[in-house]
Design a protein around this nucleic acid. Structure first.
Lengths: 307, 307
DNA sequence: CCCATCTACTAAATCGTGTTAGTGGCGCTG
DNA sequence: CAGCGCCACTAACACGATTTAGTAGATGGG
């Protein structure tokens, strides 16, 4: 059992009485090569009988890259949208014979580099980098460009419910991605003629409560727009500790429709994003395939109890 | 820029005036090869100057496997423990020059197989398979074997708080892993002389509430042990809808110390597991390295408000 | 009848590394 | 001084696929 050699292209060639080159041509449907239908059948039969599977490493060595795409997530907020984005990416890549490898590289640059070197992926989608560069292309399927619209959906919902001034809940640690998201929320507020939203930085529960109280000294502020559902939940928890209830004392809206939001009491109102479609588009973009015609459905508000 | 060829071993050999083989011997410290120190230095200098990096694909082709380990997670409950397990695995593998690739393959078997084939990993750690086989080895660093003890920690905490009969919260969909976990909880209860715990299957919030009410008809039941924190939170949500409060009407304990548990009101009491240490041990096991002497710290209860 | 074109293939180079077998030179020993 | 062992290397094959260049034979046009 230990000595069973893997079946290679040479085996197939020998079994079907042709050369290795011919086998390759048949299997890859190489253009500008004429192979008779009879020969094609012989080759395909041999492949089936021997159970031949191409050795991807040999192929990668020859082609210069493996049929794998790496998605670098880094410290991006995890959640529903990211998972859906990954699902969409994976689906479309699989359809094109590629695999997806996700790297949550909080790790040092060196080890991530080693990993990338080891896989030699056909392409790398570096989401944090895409977020921070202003001159990004559409490698992410337009997701990030859509963020401005998503933020507008969130803020204009609050506006339509009669809130004239809002605060924005953001994570404690500084991060370019966070800054970008918060910037979109502020821009949306400005566009709607609302005062510049003050920010509530979310950390430990007690300090969060303190900060929340400080911000709500301004009695014009009647709602909080959170950059993620997790942040929204932290705000709701702080409110409970302060004896406030949503939406009566303060309305709260999240972003990204996570499982936990629906379970919270009061259930969290949030923004749902069709990230799967963005993932599919990102896949087609990175592989250089023609764009699909399916449009991502626009972001929509899931209205529950908290706002 | 496009035409820059990568620097190969031949380049290094030429630059240092030796053969490719010698370069390989020097870089890999091959045994039974005598190379003079002077030559070693010349080679190392050339490597540094040319910025040579070995081509992992070529190496993988030659060696038969890449320096990558794949962790298959499948449908396992995500959470804090899994993340820590992954972190520990990653640390230790990186220290040994290997990379970790995580596959959440809910996907069809075929595409996962293709991905594995494409990477040709040195080893595959298939957690769901490990969970379900009774004759598993210690490829997971003893994590799963520890689960019985973990369940005992959870149940005996409830017992020590005066709860004489408990229910167990488990997910709706049937799954061998779930069955295993639930079995441990039941075994722990039996060992403590408690009646066999009835199960509450957690689905949509309203049906969960209905099932919870049905189970708590039995007034001896005063606590719920949940297989994961997420399930515990779902129970707490259902309790809110039923007008019950924890821990007065029913105590709830989770498993795995997720972020959300601490935020919930009442804050969730849960079991914390040192999964990172299990990850490190798993890494050493799969690579065939001698076992480390660090023992995982035993599971402990994080007592908050809910139990 | 000759040349060109097309069909249906094949031989061999190539990707970059690891490793086995071998080789000249040198010192030492009997 | 033959013979042996040791040192410090090198030549060449192997891994398994892709792709370029080329070649017999059939067909067709003038």
């Amino acid at each position: 059992m230990a000595g069973t050699r893997r079946t290679t292209m040479s085996d197939v060639a020998r079994a079907s009485g042709v050369s290795r080159a011919t086998v390759s041509f048949v299997l890859n449907g190489t253009a500008n090569q004429t192979i008779s239908e009879a020969t094609r059948d012989r080759v395909r039969l041999a492949v089936a009988e021997l159970g031949y599977v191409p050795h991807s490493i040999a192929r990668a060595l020859r082609e210069g890259a493996s049929r794998i795409v790496v998605l670098q997530v880094g410290g991006l907020p995890r959640g529903h949208a990211l998972e859906s984005f990954i699902d969409g990416l994976d689906e479309e890549l699989a359809a094109a014979g590629h695999g997806l490898l996700v790297s949550y590289g909080d790790r040092s640059l060196e080890s991530t580099g080693t990993l990338l070197e080891a896989v030699s992926p056909r392409a790398v989608i570096d989401l944090p980098a895409l977020y921070s560069r202003p001159d990004r292309d559409v490698a992410d399927g337009g997701w990030i460009d859509g963020l401005a619209a998503h933020a507008m959906t969130q803020v204009s919902f609050l506006r339509s419910r009669g809130h004239l001034a809002v605060a924005v809940a953001e994570p404690n640690r500084p991060d370019p991605v966070v800054a970008l998201l918060a910037g979109h929320v502020r821009a949306a507020a400005r566009e709607l003629g609302m005062p510049r939203p003050r920010s509530v930085r979310v950390g430990e529960t007690d300090t969060t409560a303190r900060r929340l109280r400080a911000v709500t000294q301004d009695h014009r502020i009647t709602a909080v727009a959170a950059l993620t559902d997790d942040l929204a939940i932290a705000i709701l928890a702080a409110m409970t500790d302060l004896g406030l209830t949503a939406p009566k004392d303060l309305a709260v809206i999240g972003f990204d429709d996570t499982r936990h939001g629906a379970l919270w009491r009061p259930a969290l109102t949030t923004v749902h994003i069709d990230a799967r479609a963005f993932g599919r588009r990102a896949a087609r973009n990175t592989l250089g395939l023609p764009a699909d015609d399916t449009q991502p459905t626009p972001a929509r508000v899931i209205q529950r109890a908290s706002a």
